[in-house]
Design a binder for these strands. Structure first.
Lengths: 153, 153
DNA sequence: TATTGTTATACTCTATAACTATA
DNA sequence: TATAGTTATAGAGTATAACAATA
């Protein structure tokens, strides 16, 4: 017999990941990590990690946005945004101004330095897209975006 | 004029996330987090988080797999797997046996308890799929899986 | 009474260097 | 010399509780 009761335990030569590959969560996580890897490399020149880029981009496209609004839009928790915003302010990328109608809130505004950096950073982000979805056709990339949004919206 | 030089800073009523939504990384991350949220809820009954589930599943489907092989397959770092495997062993879900041909390596094997738990857990994982991709048709879900794999493979 | 922003803090996840034993 | 597994440790990311100021 090939497998006697006294035989040594089996070893694995080719890893079977076929089951995990049927799961949406597994594939979404692997794809996200793969894209983020490219993002980290290409965005290192601006010292912007994914969440920092998202926050800075949101402030750039929504001048006067509040901390709370950013948290809602990006699914962040308020305490975790404080340090990030302090760092962006210290780097001269954003300014905190009083909110026009709510004394509790603080409006977040991009500085000119932020605007010019983001103009370059968004060009780099476009390159990340090309790299990350290099194996996809334009139509496939468009379909993928649509389906991902359908999942989380 | 609507915006005089002395006007107060603007506030934002509707947050514009349209730019971020054009980015693959942003959407992949949001989708992955949304699916993981469902996964965490449904898998809490087994005390299995995403990576623990993936590791346990891999060991179940690949008896005798080594720590290094799991790291390669899942993109984990060896030091971060040690504690996880110790915990699974302590819970009586896996066993470490000597590798049949490599004295440095350790073969990882599922216990009967692991096998029966995973049979139930994989049924729950199927329910997670239904919940997480509830807004997608069967064809769309299949397409999404294929495109995600094309990105990270 | 509820909300914004904040502090303090803890927990998880991820990353690097260095050791041991075996190949 | 290189690799498998491990230890120790540091850093990043994420979580809850509680507070002051304002609504």
């Amino acid at each position: 017999m090939a497998t006697a009761s006294t035989s040594s335990p089996p070893s694995v030569d080719t890893i079977d990941t076929s089951y995990l590959e049927t799961l949406l969560g597994y594939n979404a996580r692997r794809a996200a990590l793969s894209i983020i890897e490219v993002f980290l490399q290409d965005m290192a020149q601006y010292d912007l990690r994914p969440v920092e880029f998202s926050v800075t981009s949101l402030i750039t496209h929504n001048p006067g946005i509040t901390s709370r609004q950013i948290c809602t839009a990006l699914g962040l928790l308020p305490p975790n945004l404080v340090g990030l915003l302090n760092a962006l302010e210290k780097r001269g990328l954003i300014e905190r101004k009083p909110h026009p109608s709510d004394g509790r809130a603080v409006g977040l505004h991009p500085t000119p330095a932020c605007a010019s950096m983001m103009q370059a950073a968004e060009k780099t982000a476009a390159q990340v897209e090309v790299q990350a979805s290099g194996k996809l056709t334009t139509a496939e990339r468009k379909t993928l975006l649509r389906l991902l949004q359908k999942v989380y919206r």
